[in-house]
Simulated scan of single mutants.
Amino acid sequence: MIVVTAPTGAIGRQVLDRLLSAGRTVRVIARDPSRLPGGTRERAEVVPGSHGDPAVVDRAFEGADAVFWLVPPDPRAADPDDAYSGFSRPACDALVRHGVGHVVGISALGRGFAGRAGLVTASLAMDDLMAGTGVPHRALTMPAFMENMLTHAGSIRERGVFSSPVAPGLALPVVATRDIAAVAVRWLLDRSWRGRADVPVLGPEDLSFDAVARITAEVAGVPVRYEQVPAGEFAAAMAGAGMSEAMARGTAEMLSAKNEGLDTLEPRTARSATPTSYRTWCEEVLKPVLLA
């Protein structure tokens, strides 16, 4: 039995689909089961509720031999540590209580970074918390997702621009969620591993936001440029849009840390590279959204 958390999100949905296609017995935790992909409720056991709820994870982890762990975004959380470690503590207790054999979690690059990195610092602390249970643990550590560009679709359509605190010419790794899901499923299906480790998932190439803007314009045939904004201005805009001030600061801190080498500590290798290029992803996913 494999438990999948966040099964309606960008990564969890694809993990779930791959596991079901492989004929595996799956149980999902879904806050809103009506959002599950069609046919899932007939093919997988569904535990309604939040996987931050002690009663829900206690029920869901019973009889499980592996768990796919993904903390959902909580822009209104009190602070990043509460959003990650606070949310995950009930699951840590349930992993031990039910003797779960393996956990594959979604995390971020940045282990070894000397400074604070906002959401990334909190995510790595969550990894340490889960690994501290003694349950074999693999943290898939990622840079930015290509899917993050979907949040800029409105701004690109309306003004031809997207922005963040990241330096425009800084080349960084970027990865598609389809590739993250594929790596996660490989680890979930392989039960030979023990202990804890980080597993970098880095995409096929490093790109700057200037390069992302150029490729997006070429593929979609629309004007696109990138604009760097000060971290404080970015955080204020996020807070103005409804994010808690602590989470807005944590997000800006994470993006600023990328300018200081957060995402470049881990060299790309044949093992950590994944196949989907940004150009391919843009053609297949972002372009239809921009032109809708």
Rank of each mutant, 00 (worst) to 15 (best):
A108S: 14
V175I: 12
G221S: 06
S208T: 10
T151N: 11
V222K: 14
A213P: 05
V229Q: 13
S163K: 11
F209G: 03
V103D: 03
A167R: 09
W193H: 14
M149I: 09
F209P: 04
L207N: 02
Y226W: 03
T133C: 01
W193V: 10
L189E: 14
W193M: 12
I156E: 09
A125Y: 03
L172D: 01
M130D: 05
V201M: 04
P200V: 06
V135C: 09
L124T: 04
V175K: 08
M142P: 00
T151Y: 11
R97M: 03
H152M: 10
L150E: 14
G221W: 02
P223Y: 10
M126A: 10
R116S: 13
L172S: 01
G99Q: 13
I180W: 00
I180N: 06
L124K: 02
N148P: 03
R186A: 11
W193C: 04
S123K: 15
E218V: 08
C92F: 01
I156K: 12
M142N: 11
A197C: 12
F162G: 08
M149K: 13
L188Q: 10
H102D: 02
L109Q: 09
L109M: 05
T141F: 10
G115K: 13
E147S: 09
V175Y: 08
N148I: 02
V219F: 00
V201Y: 00
V96D: 04
M149Y: 12
L202Y: 06
I215H: 10
D93E: 14
F209Q: 15
P204L: 03
Y226G: 08
V135N: 05
G221L: 00
A153S: 12
A211T: 13
A125W: 01
S192P: 10
V219M: 09
A117F: 00
T177K: 06
L172T: 09
G118V: 12
E205N: 01
P165T: 07
D206V: 03
G203N: 07
V174C: 10
G134Q: 08
V219K: 13
L129Q: 05
D210N: 15
V135Y: 01
R111C: 07
R157L: 08
G110K: 01
G115R: 15
D93G: 14
L207Q: 04
M126L: 08
V224H: 07
L189Q: 14
